[in-house]
Amino acid sequence: MSDDLPTSMRAVVCHGPEDYRLEELPVPRPGPGEVLVRVPAVGICASDLKCYTGAPMFWGDEHRVGYCQPPVVPGHEFVGYVVALGEGAGEKYGLQVGGLAVSEQIVPCWRCRFCRRGQYWMCQQHDVYGFRQRTFGAMAEYMLWPADAINHKVPPDVPPHHAAFIEPLACAIHAVDRGEIKFEDVVVIAGAGPLGLGMVAAARMRNPRLLVVVDLEDRRLEVARRCGADLTLNPSKVDVVEEVLGLTEGYGCDVYIEATGHPAAVEQGLRMIRKLGTFVEFSVMREPVTVDWTIIGDTKELNIHGAHLGPYCYPIAIDMIRKGRLPLDEIVTHRLPLEDFHRGIEIMMSREHSIKVVLEPNA
């Protein structure tokens, strides 16, 4: 390990809802199997916003203990330059000091039922970077990847602010996989935010008969077309349910993927999907959603699939980004220094003229 590493670093620290502070923390030193990286880019995710604003999933309610374990450094959409390797860490994933790399967002325990079955993304312990004490995130100048982490090399010609999109793209690919899209399917993706746009690019590679994207912002819909959408619809301008029914002889779409995080998009999907269709729910909802479950069961007999994280999808995401499958210079709309993290959160929350906001801790 280099003796040139600093002893302290700047980091954003989450102490509670709307209580995020820029602080000085010690620079971690890697132990056996661990990797220390210098962080050039970290994205702000919709789940970061929900944690910041106090969503029950992260802070608990009468039904559950909150997922977030403050004080913790947020940030799970990231890439890093390897600066130090603990004993044995380089051999496992072929990492070298100076190389660009990414670590999958969940660090599995490798002991629970799910991990033993290869379903590591549903690990019972479930330590995702940026929320848990074992897995401090990337909104810092340096970041430590535990020995149990799953790491991948990133081609050196991929710009770091593009590579920070690997994580959301991997999640998007997994959601599309859960949709089980067939060649003749009409597919509707609700939401043209960063994840929705990744889903559009991934779904395009499945060659559905018609790929429709729904969003309230025309600018995002323009980007969706460049990601591969055949048709875009704005619910503030047209009745999107009637439009989809009209396109499908009244049957409805075959696959509906919800990526907005808004309850109205769930009801909209249940109304526009055909009988025996597949509904994929991806979003982290800020509040509980109430729908008519009769539609799911007795009326349409739907396949309801959840989608969580991006298991086994990181190599595909890296390859898609390297090949330019997405217009990332249009998707990454803002690049800010770490100290402007509050402004970055505000930009993401307002959605005005933004899609993906990336912080650059070492700019």
Rank of each mutant, 00 (worst) to 15 (best):
S2Q: 12
S2L: 13
V12G: 03
C14I: 06
C14T: 10
G16M: 14
G16A: 13
P28Q: 14
G31Y: 01
G31I: 07
L36H: 06
A41R: 01
S47Q: 03
D48G: 12
K50A: 04
Y52N: 01
Y52C: 09
G54M: 09
A55R: 06
A55V: 04
F58I: 02
H63Q: 15
R64I: 07
G66Q: 06
Y67C: 13
Y67G: 06
C68I: 02
C68P: 03
P70S: 13
V72D: 03
V72Y: 02
H76K: 12
K92N: 08
K92E: 09
Y93T: 09
Q96P: 06
Q96K: 14
S103R: 08
S103G: 05
Q105Y: 01
V107E: 02
V107Y: 03
R111G: 15
C112W: 06
C112P: 09
F114S: 07
R117Y: 10
Q125C: 14
Q125S: 13
D127A: 12
V128T: 04
Y129F: 09
G137C: 04
A140Y: 01
A140Q: 08
Y142W: 12
Y142K: 04
W145A: 01
N151L: 06
P155E: 13
D157E: 14
V158M: 06
P160Y: 08
C171I: 05
A172E: 01
H174K: 09
A175E: 06
R178I: 07
G179A: 11
E180L: 10
E180R: 11
K182V: 03
E184K: 07
V187A: 04
V187L: 06
I189W: 03
I189Y: 00
I189D: 00
P194V: 02
L195P: 00
L197A: 04
R209Q: 12
R209S: 11
L210F: 15
L210I: 15
V212G: 05
C227D: 02
G228F: 03
L231S: 07
L231H: 12
K237D: 10
D239R: 10
V244L: 02
L245D: 10
L245V: 02
G252N: 10
D254C: 13
I257P: 00
I257Y: 00
E258N: 13
E258P: 00
H262W: 14
H262A: 05
A265D: 04
A265K: 03
Q268R: 13
L276R: 11
G277T: 06
F279V: 10
T290D: 13
W293F: 03
T294K: 13
T294R: 14
T294D: 15
G297A: 12
K300G: 05
E301V: 10
L302A: 10
H308V: 07
H308C: 07
L309Y: 04
C313K: 05
A317D: 01
A317G: 12
G324D: 12
R325K: 15
D329S: 11
E330W: 00
I331E: 00
T333E: 15
L336H: 01
R343N: 09
E346D: 04
E346M: 09
M348N: 07
L359A: 05
E360K: 03
P361G: 05
